[in-house]
Amino acid sequence: MNSIQRLQCLMAGEMADRRMFTMPLSQYGAALTGCSLEEHYNDPAAYARGQTAVRETFAPDILFGPLIVAAIGEAFGSKARYFDKGPPVVSTPAIEVASEWNGLPFPDPDRHPRLSYLREALRRVVAEHGREVPVAVLLVAPIDIPGLVMGLDAWLETLLFDRPAAEAIMRRVTPFAAELANRCFADGAAFVVWTIGFASPGFVTREILQEFSRPVLVDTLARVHGPVVLHHLEFPLVANLDVLSGLPSVAGFVLAQGDNLKRARRLLGADSILLSGPASPWMRRAAAADVEAVCRKTLENRRDDPRFILASCKGDMYIDTPPANIHAFRKSVEEFAGDRR
């Protein structure tokens, strides 16, 4: 059984030969191929070689396009800093206050160099592996885009104290977010992952979630022509899943290491895909035996749940994560399948 067939089983609510498992091993591909991160985040061919090395070394059931959310900020004019050991971050936002959105040119997903890099890298990974392994791309939901364009402080300030301005920003950002996701589907993405920091209890109040974030997500997701998986980003998400259930186009959720998966399943119903497992910062420092134990416990928790995928959470795997920890992750899935037979 290949990974596409496992995904088909999962979608049909049937048990496959073993659990699907995945980790975003985006920059880890550069570590495996000995590529500098500068080249990795600029050359689509170098990126695709990294994902080939990831598949050959760890064989995850889902591969990823570049995890480079700063590129979306760059596309709007923000400046990013690139590092030797980690992903780039926005260092200088394009604008400082809400009123500057009015004159801000929006990037063309087909022409902007940073978005072109992201999409070409995705296309190359899909071309090489997409027949056997689903390829996902991680983008940000419209509610998280302003943080990359005006900075987190200014976006929070606007959202909290000038709601009409925040809503006006969303009216401009929503079509862009949907369009970028749709172009990625056209490029072959099996699904799009959206971070939803501004819908998580660690970021916003219930009032903001219900009155602002959810309506924006409903509006945007209704324009998206493919399955979207919503990602917790930083904090546990389960406390808000009652409000986030039933969104259009949403196939599932990536939940945090501390999230209560039984409660999540109750809130979302049987059809939603759940992805969860150890957090990437924790995996960087843990012993392989501990990784295996946590994975095993998570798999045990979801033993009879056909729509669960063991997945690392929080973000891209750090490049100095011991390979033994990633192998332990995979081993837990294989041994769990053996136990079930």
């Binding site: 909290l160 209890p201 660690g202 970021f203 916003v204 109040t205 546990p236």
Partner: peptide, 11 residues
């Protein structure tokens, strides 16, 4: 018993 949010901390 829920986590204090960033928005509440900011306020």
């Amino acid at each position: 018993s829920e986590r204090f949010s960033l928005a509440q901390a900011y306020v």
